[in-house]
Design a protein around this nucleic acid. Sequence first.
DNA 1: GTTAGCACTCACCTTCATCGAGTGCTAATC
DNA 2: GATTAGCACTCGATGAAGGTGAGTGCTAAC
Lengths: 344, 344
Amino acid sequence: MRLGERKLRILQAIIEDYVMSGEPVGSRTIAKKYNLGISSATIRNEMADLEEMGYLKQPHTSAGRIPSDKAYRLYVDHLMEVRSLTPEEAKGIKKLYKIKTEQIEEIIAQTAKILSDITNYTSIVFKPELSKVLIKKIKIMPIDEEFALLIVVTNSGIIRDTIVRFPEGVESSYLEKISNMLTERFSDKSFLEIDTLIIPEIRKELAINRQMFNRVVDALTDSLTEREKKEVYLYGTGNILNFPEYRDLDKAKAFLNIMEEPELIYDIIKDLAEGGVTVTIGSENPHPDMKDSSIVTATYHIGDRVIGTIGLIGPTRMEYARVFSIMDYMGKCLSQYLTQILND
Amino acid sequence: MRLGERKLRILQAIIEDYVMSGEPVGSRTIAKKYNLGISSATIRNEMADLEEMGYLKQPHTSAGRIPSDKAYRLYVDHLMEVRSLTPEEAKGIKKLYKIKTEQIEEIIAQTAKILSDITNYTSIVFKPELSKVLIKKIKIMPIDEEFALLIVVTNSGIIRDTIVRFPEGVESSYLEKISNMLTERFSDKSFLEIDTLIIPEIRKELAINRQMFNRVVDALTDSLTEREKKEVYLYGTGNILNFPEYRDLDKAKAFLNIMEEPELIYDIIKDLAEGGVTVTIGSENPHPDMKDSSIVTATYHIGDRVIGTIGLIGPTRMEYARVFSIMDYMGKCLSQYLTQILND
DNA sequence: GTTAGCACTCACCTTCATCGAGTGCTAATC
DNA sequence: GATTAGCACTCGATGAAGGTGAGTGCTAAC
């Protein structure tokens, strides 16, 4: 069976109606509300075909139809009409930012809040990913005889610090030497390059004091990788309770539990396309507890380098077209703010 | 009317039964399950008295009684039997800590998770409050001509950093001078002392370069105060959906919304007693959306200095006695870990 | 190929009766 | 005088019965 133009139009109408109402859509509704120029009986026939092809489901015999994940996928890829925000809408969003601060964290937190407020879904914003960020300066500062503080400054303005312990004691002159050497070698490199290329190289050269050097490198790796996944801003988790699909308490609980492990979401979206907006629909999602939820993500960048991701999570019955354009805009907005702060 | 011994015993039985079952408790249940040696009719009479005195409520005429907030307060203050954890229980909890790291954040996050896992309530752990912490070292490190990094190391091992901007340029020799001076003046002082006593004093002495000094002090104040309230670890927000009192979606939403603003909770508990375990029951709580929830808090410390708070949030129908002893233990446990890490 | 018409399905709502846990009151008992 | 047994009463919860209506699939006519 082929998916002719008429079937597509009907499918589109069903999806849009269902997304709005949350109720299964019947043939009569489509015939009346959408002027497709065909009768409900014809639509019924087409709907039966669409169901056979896997695009529609019936919750029970005497109810209307609801779209399947496959239908949403088709919709997102080919059917939906994404219009970019009007200048007024865009201005409205920009107004929500109350930026006085130059704190990057503050801007990111606000982005999460705004996203969830204007969409009514749950928003998630990952802090800039350090492995994609360029290192500007590394410094090791002695605290006392035994501890030192390792500080990394990056071009995104984010700073990481960790305590390094040298049980065997430490000379500050040596630390300074290491700092200088690391800064020289690492500056303007991304962590990825450092980890895979430069460190092994240095290890070869540097025969003496290997133990101490290893401590520093371990701390550096720690501070740049391990903590990075956790730094997440979540907002609007309570919003999902507005959707009838989460009335089921077990589903709501499963959702909230997942939101407490943002690493999972990170794992799900981390492989997605480098730029632009992506949509992951229900069962496309590897995690079983997320098979009723969709995720829409966008990336943000500093200059040309993608350094982070923003996401919206909601039921599969999501206003994809609207969310798509909002995410696109917010990604750009955030990128612009960040780039601007750094170039100021 | 006086609250005789028998009334107290009955009230205690009602509270304990209701806390377990979540169902209104009838006179017959009490007579049968708790051997008070009196008949249900007597209990009925006493219950009518207790209701008149404001300790019990009836959801509707033909139902049993449930305790009021006033009753819970009485219970917590005088009736409940707090037993400390058995050595086995204590060991069980300690086992849950998978501490390899010496990262304070890691330990705190684990504490939050453990608390919520073993109690099934929502846990909240505030990171060490810096105004109560002693400063050990302050350093200003130039990043480039315009920016410098201000770093504060405290005795709790927590480090704060902020970027300070000197639009008019900066000499690194001068920064070093400021660093040394600040370290000397501030070390072993708490932020509170610094802010109220020492800074004004320095301001007086230091006539030149006032502008630059102000920038540094502002950044210091910022880094130590503004961000501190937000640093919070929450866990188990989904747990509340297990309690019938939050079946009402609006209540659940209100709860989740509050959990997104931990500052509110901080405001509620910040005035509580300096040490030990505290209990805030339902309507004792200033925030209207929390009038159905209780909060139990404990403090943790480094050495003798209280530096932070852990809390559990659940319905007013909470297992106060059990939670009380767990919180007491966890507070001590966390204090011990932290103190140990720093003295290692 | 399209549509009007019709019988059929089935979730949902309302109504109604029943059930039972729990109460308050009264009178008998200790 | 306090306690208790007994009893009538209340009222939410539960479940069955019946009606309603949105929706379907099928058939026959256009």
